[in-house]
Design a protein around this nucleic acid. Sequence first.
RNA 1: GCGCCUGUAGCUCAAUUGGAUAGAGCAACGGCCUUCUAAGCCGUAGGUUGUAGGUUCGAAUCCUACCUGGCGCACCA
Length: 588
Amino acid sequence: MKDHIATLLRTAAKRLQNQQVLPTDLDTRGIKVELSRDKKHGDFAANNALVWAKAAQCPPLKLAQQLCAALPHSELIQSAHIAGPGFINFVCVIGADKHTIQSILTQADKYGHSEEYSDQRVLLESVSSNPTGPLHVGHGRLAAYGDSLANLLATQGYRVQREYYINDDGRQIDILTLSIWICYLKHIFPDVPSLPHAAYHGEYIRVYASMLYEQEAAQYGIDNIDDLYAGIPSDNEGEAADRHLDALIERAQQLLGVDNYTALSQWAVTKILHAIKDDLAVFGVRIDNWFSEKKITHSQEVRRILAKLSERDAIATRAGAQWFVATQYGDEKDRVLIRHNNKPTYFANDTAYHYNKLQRGFDSLINVWGADHHGYVARMRAALRALGFDAQRLKVQLVQLVALYRHGKKIAMSTRKGEFITLRQLIEEVGVDAARFFFVMRRIDQSTEFDLSLAIAQSKDNPVYYIQYAHARICSLYRQLEERSLVWDQQAGLNALAQLEQEEELALSRWLSEYPATLKNAAQQCEPAILVNYLKQLAGLFHSYYNAHSIIVNDSAVRNARLCLVSAVRTIIANGLRLIGVSAPQSM
RNA sequence: GCGCCUGUAGCUCAAUUGGAUAGAGCAACGGCCUUCUAAGCCGUAGGUUGUAGGUUCGAAUCCUACCUGGCGCACCA
């Protein structure tokens, strides 16, 4: 319907251009027809007279009159009139948007989808939590957002691959290995000192250590616990903690030997990764490709990147380290790629990883990161630019982390200290539906405070139920129909759509017709929250309708038509919820 | 100190990306179940959109300054 009106306006504009009222070079492609917010303003509104007034050197009201006069006749439009400062408001004939309902019924779960961007391959990287501990609530938001976004993009035709980058190499993994090993040794030597400050302290460390001891009691033992701590610098706050930890890691590698140490390390990472995969599966989050950092570190990719950057004079050697001169590419500081000890930095690996992504033939990359990584965006862009890519091909979606409160007190979410609510705990407490809905119901740049105890207490009031309830109510209507031995004649209903003339029915079908534009908008803006708001509105319109009118009435034509309408509503709710990973129950 | 994000009803958030009289849900108050699911609906009350300027037909939205809160500024990841 919007397109139809836009076409009418375009024709009118062309006529005015021929009459020299509008400049001939005026761009008439960007005509925007909006659904009126207020019924007094008709069904649809266009603001072109206001937008074009300046170019036409003509007062908006006068231009609006001329546009109106030049509009071609349409049997779908009852009237077009001018209001306010120069809006053109359109009133449609009743049933003009009946093709919406028909399309929804025939296209079902494909309704509103488009193939517009089917030539675009997108790599969407999300979560990418280090395999050093279970997923927590913050990761849950990244996962829920990333998964929903991928679904949304797919509705517009994008070929999306969902990837998880596994940081399974480097110091963090060493710390994990050491933490588990020390807890493991406690089973053998009761007097093992407590874990270093800088180690991982989560409960899961002890759990895995016990598991390891049960499975491999002898494999990772040592003769004398003093061998581990002899000559190790003491454990104090600050830098001393890191020195203490690094010395212990080195000692562990000596005592265990390379093979055993590596085996232990791999055992730990594998265990944790399995847990992460399980959590995501339970959460309904799909990952197509698990990309190991080792693919980067065990190949020559970093060296290749370095060579490429050298060719472009983007490398400088300072104080024994190799720097990427990021300042020449829009970053505020230069960045170290190769440390003085000849080890590449995380940034070096990450640059190689992003280069690898683009080499795989993706047109664009989307990274879903926690907002605390925003300082990293400029340097990643700079690196891609230096490697000769258009930095616009990398889009970084920064998701505000969830600040959790319990009983009004902020919970320190520290992976290292092991103080966090895991995603698994959250799911067990509020369920997958509520959790996924909660994570995407707000725009990602909204910082949010969330009292867990409150959310658990109010779980019955979670807004997800409002939408699901609308769906369940509609399903119930069809069960009711059966009980009354009635049959829904869809074709008869479609033929009788013009009889849907109640205010609530018109509002519903108008809102249904907005679904395709909503999907497109949500995908373009990378904001699942837009879809959520749409669904809330749709559910609200339905509940109002349901309370005001009976659907199963005696008049069979009206009944069938109403059943067509609510069936369309049901389909859209189910489709929309599916895109954000929330179920649409048949009954509640 | 520098940079990024944020500020809308008592609370949590919307506002079709610059449109018409800023809207929902909680919380408060008053109504609606003998009838398709009351996890619902209808109504009342609640606002100088952080502050001050600017841009234009028109600003919560864009620009500038200041204020508030969050985050980031490693040879950590």
